[in-house]
Amino acid sequence: MTGDSGGPRVAIVTGGSRGIGRETAGRLAQDGFAVVINYAGNKVEADAAVEDLVASGALAFAVQADVADEVAVASVFDQAEERFGGVDVVVHAAGVMPLSPLADLDLAVLDRVLRTNVRGTFVVDQQAARRLRPGGAIINFSSSITRFSRPGYAAYGASKGAVEAITLTLARELRGRNITVNAVAPGPTATALFLDGKSEELITRIAGESPLERLGEPADLAEVVAFLAGAGRWVNGQVIYVNGGSI
């Protein structure tokens, strides 16, 4: 799989040092992408992810950046272009998920959620819209919580509703560019983001809500992202719920 310059197609994966983002980076590398892993702060995890990719034969490097900082995000794209010649796919998997009933939510926490999940999506997508090569794809991450409406998720669910609005609007704004824009909306998935702070009893109960009677795995999501980044050119302006039939 090659880009316009004859080199490999290039993907930036935000939140690529762990969880779904890391699994997705590996899956795209299998398809021949050069991968730029963006991470928020854990350099050890990011370096380990890059080492795994390079050991598999992929081209990869990591860049630290706060996704809500437009200067830092622009630098991620700059470095991807300098190293690999351009950018074809952006997978925006970075996000935060603090939980609290709405009545008890510290508004400073709400501000952090909105800054990372909403402003972060806007900033990343803005750079992607300006800089992706024709034939590219922007893949945001929403959440099935926009349909579950589970107590405690008001801030997170509101932020992901905004992600969906951004995604669907941008898909239409990029008319004529041959760039697709979609959002993947996971259900409960066995990552640290979901598992942290939950009792084993609660995790078992939530897993049982799916007709498939299990939690999702990062690989389940990575396969959908790989499709959207590759063969799924006729899927555009959609939110794809990947949750094992929980809703």
Rank of each mutant, 00 (worst) to 15 (best):
T2N: 14
G3S: 12
G3T: 02
S5Q: 14
S5V: 05
G6D: 03
G7P: 12
R9F: 11
I12V: 14
R18E: 12
G19E: 06
L28E: 07
D31F: 12
D31R: 15
F33Q: 05
V35G: 05
V36Y: 01
Y39R: 09
D47Q: 14
A48N: 13
V50A: 03
D52Y: 05
L53P: 08
L53S: 09
V54Q: 08
V54Y: 02
G57H: 02
A58F: 03
F61R: 13
A65E: 05
A68M: 03
E70F: 01
S75V: 11
S75Q: 12
G85T: 11
A93P: 03
A94W: 00
A94Y: 00
V96L: 03
P101Q: 03
L102C: 15
L102W: 04
L105F: 01
D111R: 08
D111W: 00
V118M: 07
L132I: 12
R133T: 13
P134K: 09
P134L: 09
P134W: 15
G136A: 07
I138V: 12
I138C: 12
S142C: 13
I145S: 15
S149W: 04
G152W: 00
G152C: 00
Y153T: 15
Y156L: 06
L168W: 06
A171E: 06
L174E: 03
R177F: 09
N178W: 04
A183Y: 08
A185T: 00
G187E: 03
P188L: 12
L193M: 15
D196H: 12
G197C: 09
G197Y: 05
E201Y: 09
L202N: 14
I203N: 06
G208N: 14
L221F: 09
A222L: 04
V224R: 04
F227E: 06
A229R: 01
Q238T: 14
Q238C: 15
